[in-house]
Nucleic acid binder design. Structure first.
Lengths: 328, 328
DNA sequence: TACCGCTACGAAAACGTTATCGAAAACGTT
DNA sequence: AACGTTTTCGATAACGTTTTCGTAGCGGTA
């Protein structure tokens, strides 16, 4: 079923059919109607591939996520909602979580798809990607913010220092930190916020109280256990994201420690799960869906040519007090 | 950056470059190495679009989800993991949750992509799709199971009757039901399971105790409130999926009722969130990720030609006892 | 030397679409 | 009737690949 079939059936040339499909000027109303009728009858849909090969325009934007975890999923929701009224469509690709092979898959995909299958891309991959692609790209929460690539993130520094100040305000002084990965920009910013708030309060930063949790639940359990079994156990823990906070909860539960009585806990992200834990997690809210929407917005402007190639959208964060932290 | 650039740079024809890329026979080792070197230097990646237009084979399978909610997300995880060693790649499309327009978007997408961009498709869309596409299609938890379309689902009937029997075993007799949508096969099967277990126990089915929740959290709150404010309030509720169960929890909390003391609750699906609620949700476990993996498996066989066009994989369900139901 | 078979390579046709441009037809004006 | 203008339409060349097939080169054999 190609455009040729339609043309033959309607008794016109393929050029005319193409014009009808794309609503171009220069075809008589009667012809247009007849062709449209045939299209409907045959249930013809033009091939996205052929179209894009020729016209270099597809009206789809691609979103590359490293893995389907709660954060990216929320981003997906945000983007897929934001995109509905833009006239674009969304195509998602996942690296499949195979962290090993993933060194350059974003770049590979980007160049395979760009210029042909997608008109623009949103990256939700932690690792860095050179902006040198042939299509506009917006990065969410990227490895590094500079490099002329438009980015969307939230105010990680302010959020982390708010969290830390909150714990300080509750009287805590020995506050442990479970970081993400040192190679991630967001992780560094959160650590900086933590350090800065401590310094500001005149509390010395104790490197022994800091661990790397890797932003994942399972990989945070052991580092958390280490902190929680110290003779001078910290009275509060700040986890660099909610997934890590879940890991802390696992570790605490395994040790028979209760939160927040034995140890206070604050997370970061406010993924949907964090409202459901026992106790519900006090955390720093990041407007994740809005970040997705902002990325779509930015990208659309970029593709229209009306965008600025190095705008950095930074959304505010704020504290959500729930039940996982209490005064000393 | 096209294959032409590579050819020119390497001093060979495009045909030769193509052969090198695809590892075809008939090119001297020395030439092959030289071309490969140029490819590496230039960072060339062949255009998926042009390739697929010509060869009608792309090695990517598409997955269409209606919306990014927990269930589809779990499916996505399952598929994207299962696909890693198959040599295929995964592209996901979302209808964007615009329920209104969505009447035939799956069909539209399918015919636009099939034969060109994807070699096969997995459908995670509740509405029906005619199997008449030009590529193999596997449906997960589809509207209707017959029609010669390969499907993967779980044993909804058995799961629902297990859940109901469990509540009966706890001594409950007035058990309310919050259904999905009457047009969904899985929803009907769960209702049937509920009815059957009641009948088997000699308990009359009371239509007043049955409501439609629509499988979503927000849309279940009101129907749940209706049931919970009846003078003869049911002592237990069975929600047709976990999202609805969350809605029940919302309604109960708003009414000042505690679960499980005032009313017992059992869900269905065992999405990750359900382990985190307060109290943790007792639910019917559906091996969601495995369902995704099974779909990949089925589809790959179908594409290899070694598959059977109307196999229906049905995975077992089982009860996960947590804290939301108790004996009367 | 003449012939054969094999390997290495390139020319060119296809895939299904869109864009350009020219021709034909229809219409209006003098 | 002659001419200019506008409308309608179709031939055709791209787009970047893969694939088929022809051919040049080359070593080996009679």
């Amino acid at each position: 079923m190609t455009i040729n079939d339609v043309a033959r059936e309607a008794g016109v040339s393929v050029a005319t059919v193409s014009k009808v499909i794309n609503g171009r000027y220069g075809v008589a109303v009667s012809t247009s109607e007849r062709v449209q009728q045939v299209i409907d009858d045959l249930g013809y849909e033009s091939s996205l591939v052929a179209r894009s090969l020729r016209s270099h325009r597809t009206n789809v934007i691609g979103i590359l996520v490293a893995e389907f975890e709660p954060f990216s999923t929320e981003i997906l929701k945000g983007t897929s909602q934001a995109i509905t009224d833009t006239g674009y469509e969304l195509l998602a690709y996942s690296g499949g979580g195979r962290a090993g092979t993933s060194v350059g898959w974003e770049r590979r995909y980007l160049s395979r798809l760009s210029g042909t299958l997608i008109d623009g891309a949103i990256l939700v991959t932690p690792t860095v990607v050179e902006p040198g692609g042939s299509v506009p790209v917006v990065a969410i929460d990227p490895h590094a913010g500079p490099a002329g690539m438009p980015t969307v993130d939230s105010d990680n520094f302010a959020g982390a220092s708010t969290a830390t100040r909150y714990l300080l305000g509750l009287g805590h002084r020995r506050i442990g930190f479970l970081g993400g990965r040192p190679d991630l920009e967001s992780s560094r910013q959160r650590e900086d916020g933590y350090r800065s708030a401590l310094a500001e309060a005149g509390v010395a930063v104790d490197p022994d109280l800091m661990r790397v949790g890797g932003y994942r639940r399972a990989s945070t359990v052991e580092p958390a256990r280490e902190l929680l079994t110290r003779p001078d156990r910290p009275t509060a823990l700040f986890a660099a994201n909610d997934l890590s906070a879940l890991g802390v909860m696992d570790a605490a539960a395994a040790l028979g420690l209760t939160i927040p009585d034995d140890v206070s806990l604050v997370g970061f992200d406010n993924i949907p799960e964090s409202a459901l834990t026992t106790p519900p997690l006090t955390t720093i809210h990041q407007p994740i869906q809005q970040m997705g929407a902002a990325a779509v917005d930015l990208l659309v402007h970029l593709m229209d040519g009306s965008g600025d190639r190095d705008t950095h959208v930074r959304l505010p964060t704020d504290l959500v007090e729930r039940g996982s932290a209490r005064a000393l």
